[in-house]
């Protein structure tokens, strides 16, 4: 599992961030991003993933833990995004403050 701090996230450009995530996931890691990805970035990530889907890499599982919607910001910020390889992650269970990942034992 790779935990990426907010500081590291902010030091990267949008594309660099997505490339970094996808490379991590493709080499078998579960990547946890502090601060998370925006909806637009996640959509871009799905697009990038689809370009790279192959027989050995069927894609990703992605899960977001949104922060509470503020009074003035309508744009929902994600607090945490968890991304993993689809072939090893069965489910990324959702719960408010706890992430439990079930990794299949193969």
């Amino acid at each position: 599992m790779r935990l990426i701090s907010k500081g590291k996230m902010e030091s990267m450009g949008s594309m660099e961030k997505l490339r970094f995530v996808l490379d991590g996931v493709k080499s078998g890691n579960i990547v946890v991003l502090e601060g998370g990805l925006t909806s637009e970035e996640q959509m871009k990530l799905i697009e990038l993933t689809m370009i790279e889907v192959s027989e050995d890499f069927p894609g990703i599982e992605i899960s977001g833990y949104p922060s509470k919607r503020g009074f003035f910001n309508t744009r929902r910020k994600t607090r945490l995004t968890v991304i993993g390889p689809a072939n090893t992650i069965k489910t990324i269970e959702k719960s408010k403050d706890l992430i439990s990942t079930l990794i299949s034992s193969n």
């Binding site: 925006t38 909806s39 637009e40 996640q42 959509m43 799905i46 992605i62 899960s63 977001g64 949104p66 309508t74 744009r75 929902r76 959702k94």
Partner: peptide
């Protein structure tokens, strides 16, 4: 219904 793809489509439309 609470899948990330649904959340992401909605998030994009809202943005």
């Amino acid at each position: 219904p609470y899948t990330q793809t649904n959340v992401v489509i909605i998030g994009n439309m809202e943005a």
